[in-house]
């Protein structure tokens, strides 16, 4: 179950230039400029509930706040205001292979990446063979990942991330990686995870996929919820607005 209560997320624009001593010095003496801080609300007053087992899609144009919303739900961002309540173990599939170390071998990376995703050692020991088999990296287990092709890295990362049966799944686009055969395999795996009774928050640009999988849809624009409701209804309205603009 996911409960989002009045969540807003504010970013400071142009903060990039700010973190050096020189800039601090300049800002200190530059009284006029100091007060001019530009803000950007990536999310504004977002408020919704997702019941257990519901599959909810998130649509919207680029920069509408979809990814920010996923990051707020998964706990990467702490919202500026409001509250996020998530019951159950979250499995964020936002970007795969975060925390892979190129100098370590596939075997070592399975444990490191697993630990980063919050698995414990016993679980990884138990699932190790399954991961290796799914990723098709058996012969290369003790090769540093930097010698892998990018497809192989993606396959390994995918296999580690999808080994759990999470209670809450957060997905940014259906991930199908690797060669044709693996794409099919990974797609099926994702589908079975999504349709397996877990609570899902699913971002996609493919209305087709959304219609197939989701029971409800959130339409985001400029950080605000434009519509939240039945899939067909929201998709229709979204499609129409896209046509017009």
């Amino acid at each position: 179950m996911i409960k989002i209560k009045n969540v807003s997320m504010k970013f400071n624009l142009g903060i990039e230039n700010d973190n050096s001593l020189k800039m601090m010095f300049i800002r200190f003496f530059n009284f006029k400029k100091r007060k001019k801080q530009e803000y950007f609300w990536a999310l504004k007053d977002i408020d919704f509930n997702i019941e257990k087992g519901e599959v909810v899609g998130v649509i919207g144009i680029n920069g509408a706040g979809k990814s920010t919303l996923l990051k707020v739900v998964s706990g990467v961002y702490k919202p500026t205001t409001g509250e996020v309540i998530v019951n159950g173990k979250i499995s964020p599939m936002i970007e795969l292979g975060a925390g892979f170390d190129a100098d370590l071998t596939a075997r070592e990376n399975i444990y490191l990446n697993g630990a980063i995703l919050g698995y414990d050692k016993e679980f990884l020991d138990e699932k190790f063979n399954e991961i290796v088999q799914f990723a098709e990296v058996k012969e290369f287990l003790d090769v540093p990942v930097k010698n892998f092709s990018s497809g192989m890295v993606a396959k390994l990362a995918f296999s580690i991330s999808t080994i759990v049966n999470p209670q809450v799944l957060i997905v940014d686009e259906i991930l199908s990686v690797g060669d044709l055969k693996f794409q099919e395999k990974s797609k099926n795996k994702m589908m079975s995870m999504i349709t397996g009774g877990t609570t899902v928050l699913y971002v996609s640009h493919s209305l087709e996929a959304i219609k197939n999988l989701c029971s409800k849809v959130i339409w985001l624009d400029h950080g605000k919820i434009v519509m939240f409701g039945e899939t067909n209804e929201v998709c229709e309205a979204y499609y129409k607005s896209q046509q017009e603009s």
Partner: peptide, 9 residues
């Protein structure tokens, strides 16, 4: 940073 920005740790 790249890690902190993607997964909650």
């Amino acid at each position: 940073f790249s890690l902190i920005n993607k997964v909650y740790i």
